[in-house]
Amino acid sequence: MSAWTRILAAILFVLLSPILAGLLAGLDRIISARMQSRIGPPLLQPIYDLLKLFQKERIAVNRSGHFFLLGYLLFTILAGIEFFIGGDLLIVIFALALASVFFVLGAFAAGSPYSHIGAERELIQIMASEPMLIMCAMGFYVATGSFQVTTIHAQPTPLIATLPGIFLGMIYILTIKLRKSPFDLSTSHHAHQEIVKGITTEFAGPYLAIIELAHGYETILLLGFLYLFFAPWPLLALAALIAVYFLEILADNTHARLYWQWVLRTSWAFTAIVGAGNLILLHYLQRGGTP
């Protein structure tokens, strides 16, 4: 890919992600509604919600909390740009982690008990999902010899063939990242929660909209990660992404929310088994069976 297409991809990411993520969320809500024998909202509902939030009054507990949200949004976008411009995957992951840290700090700074508990739970979720993200980058590295998205994208054969375990692990933590049941510990869109709205409790109006926006960017970025597994065959990739997203909705609709202990233990155990297992197997296979 030439530099220009890469820059174009990054620009498109910045411009289109909110709309794309909005449509995706709208579809998600409709499909969920259908699974619950309901009609559900219009397709554009998430976008209406977002725009409405920007029109609401700005209220906050103190004057410093929203500054961190800005960091959340900026660094999520930065991570996305780095990804779509074909940069270093590890940098993408670290920028994403930095963004999440900003989000959590914002909730801490809000100084309300519910957002505090939400923030602690969000941290647990980050802790549960972070190793798999890094392992995903490592998997690409073992398979292609590079952390650069451009190199990974340019592989002639789909990486899913050599990295099925990593892919499974990524689907697992995608559930955490998309805040779907059974992993919607820190906040969730629909269900009522023991911690109210958790990490977003204190953020109203435009501030909530910033969170939604950043979450939209994050969703598209994570789907981009999954896309890399099928990069040479875009149609297959699209089909796989749709299937994965449908799977997430299905999981959301067929599970109760579980405990943080369970979330942490299973995601670490699962990603350690399938992720690290895949990595080590691949490592030895590449060495031709001579450890």
């Binding site: 809500r29 509604a33 009609i39």
Partner: peptide
């Protein structure tokens, strides 16, 4: 199903 109208509780 008030979510038809975009209503969320």
């Amino acid at each position: 199903d008030v979510e038809r109208l975009g209503i969320i509780n």
